[in-house]
């Protein structure tokens, strides 16, 4: 199996590209941000809100773990992802413009937004939160360049079944972001002809 070599510079470059893209999405009309291609799909703003929720567990972990990591006196080397972690990362990574492994989102990561009645103020808040949280991610990647990251592993967002070394967690988050950027592109592509407003439906089981 080919190695997955992770470098913080590559991750920073990709994160910057995503931040630029989301900044351009913020300019879109409210109608476009709150509409989705079909009743089962998320709108763009729901995707952004989901990304904010998904970063939550990592935000806490990074704040907890960074103070424990010793400083490096020399330049950090690249990091090779471990086999199991690599597999989890690759399942997230989009292949070009395709999301290869479709997966069901866990309930706790679902955005609960009422697209039809979403106010501009709320939309702005979601974007602002995205930039704050992913600014935090960028700081974490930058900080990791001068830290000994070889000792500490953190639980992934889905729990201890997957544990990541820091560079693996960054890569997982980036692939997750890139995956959802593909999803947003799909929404935008379809937006020319078939956007419909979505409302949240509740079922009693």
């Amino acid at each position: 199996m080919a190695k997955l070599i992770l470098s913080p510079e590559n991750q920073i470059q990709r994160l910057n590209i995503i931040l630029n893209k989301v900044a351009s999405l913020q300019e879109l009309d409210k109608k476009l941000l709150t509409c989705s291609a079909d009743s089962k799909s998320w709108s763009i703003i729901e995707v952004i809100a989901h990304l904010n929720i998904a970063y939550g567990p990592y935000h806490i972990k990074y704040d907890e773990e960074f103070p424990k990591m010793p400083d490096l006196k020399k330049e950090r080397k690249t990091f090779q992802a471990k086999t199991w972690q690599k597999m989890i990362i690759e399942m997230q990574r989009p292949k070009g413009t395709k999301r290869k492994w479709k997966m069901k989102t866990l309930k706790r990561f679902e955005p609960l937004l009422d697209n039809e009645n979403l106010e501009k103020k709320k939309i702005d808040q979601i974007f602002q939160q995205f930039f704050e949280l992913h600014g935090h991610l960028k700081e974490a990647i930058l900080k990791s360049r001068t830290k000994d990251i070889s000792k500490i592993r953190i639980n992934s967002g889905i729990g201890p079944i997957v544990k990541f070394y820091l560079p693996e967690s960054f890569e997982f988050l980036l692939c997750h972001l890139e995956r959802h950027m593909v999803q947003i592109d799909e929404v935008l592509k379809k937006s020319d002809f078939s956007l419909i407003p979505r409302t949240i439906t509740f079922t009693i089981s």
Partner: peptide, 10 residues
Amino acid sequence: QYDLITEAGS
């Protein structure tokens, strides 16, 4: 030392 003065993508 090692600070990024300019980042690709920005």
